[in-house]
Amino acid sequence: MAGNQYEIIAWDLDGTLSHSLPDIAASLNMTLSEEGYPLLDEARIQSYLGDGVSALVERALSCSLSGNADFCLEKTMLKRVTDRYRDIYAANCTKRSRLYDGIPQILQQLSHKKQAIITNKPMLMTGRMLEHYQIVSFFGIVIAGDSLPQRKPHPEPVQLALRHFQKKAENMILIGDSTVDIATARNAGIAIAAVTWGYTDLETLAEAQPDFIIHKPEELLSIFN
């Protein structure tokens, strides 16, 4: 498809627009420390990203307690720790996070397109980060992990964006850094550009067969020429 047919650009947030890992990891380890549990290194926490807060905390807590991210946890404890992490992260989500180099310029250069955020991050933190980065005005709709009953990789967030802009699936491309984003696009029948500066290695992204693999933000412009 010619790039000029992509009238809607949907962006993932963490690992695509924003290098958010430092604040996520610090907040998660602060939560574990309060509970008296062993801390985790950033690389391990990075491997747990992509499926939302609940999955992140469950994997991290399981690993901290047992060394196994699939360790079965008691539901009441998991909810308590997850709620505490949400509070800590909400207060710290803009401390060390930053936009990747070149992202503000790309958002401006693509501002003639309709743009959206589709993230599994909760709306509270998403909104705070977009305001902090002063980029919220670029997006016609922001769809967070708690905006709908379903989140990525379910197609519902994409379908909401399409309804909002009154466009068809062939008119939309999702830009993200994870296999969750690739699966989301496939499930929704839209195009996907996978970026390599985020939290998933190139080999894993390539195996998932996105429509485009992008190594630098400025390369995104070639899709729309």
Rank of each mutant, 00 (worst) to 15 (best):
L110P: 00
A169F: 06
S97Y: 13
L162M: 15
L39K: 08
Y85C: 01
G140M: 05
L202H: 03
K121W: 02
S54K: 12
R84I: 08
L148A: 05
E35T: 04
A191W: 09
Q109R: 12
Y133V: 05
V195L: 02
L56R: 03
G50K: 12
M129A: 09
H154Q: 11
A206W: 08
L160W: 11
M125C: 13
A194R: 08
Q134R: 07
T119R: 08
K95L: 14
Y6M: 11
N120W: 05
R128W: 10
A55H: 06
L65G: 01
E170L: 02
G145Y: 06
G145W: 12
L148F: 04
S147N: 08
A206G: 00
L65Q: 11
F138Y: 15
P104Y: 08
N225F: 04
L162N: 08
T76V: 12
A90G: 06
L124Q: 15
N92A: 13
M30T: 15
Q150E: 13
K167M: 02
L17N: 13
V81L: 14
T16H: 04
E156N: 01
L39P: 00
R151E: 04
H215T: 08
D201W: 07
R84F: 07
G52A: 05
Y100P: 00
R96V: 00
R80L: 05
I190H: 02
L56G: 01
A55N: 10
S66V: 02
A69Y: 09
L21F: 05
A169N: 10
V81F: 07
G50W: 12
D211M: 03
L124I: 13
K114N: 07
F71L: 02
L110C: 10
S54Q: 14
L78C: 04
G102M: 07
A208E: 15
H132Y: 11
L61V: 11
M129F: 09
S222Y: 07
L162F: 05
T94G: 03
M1R: 13
A26W: 09
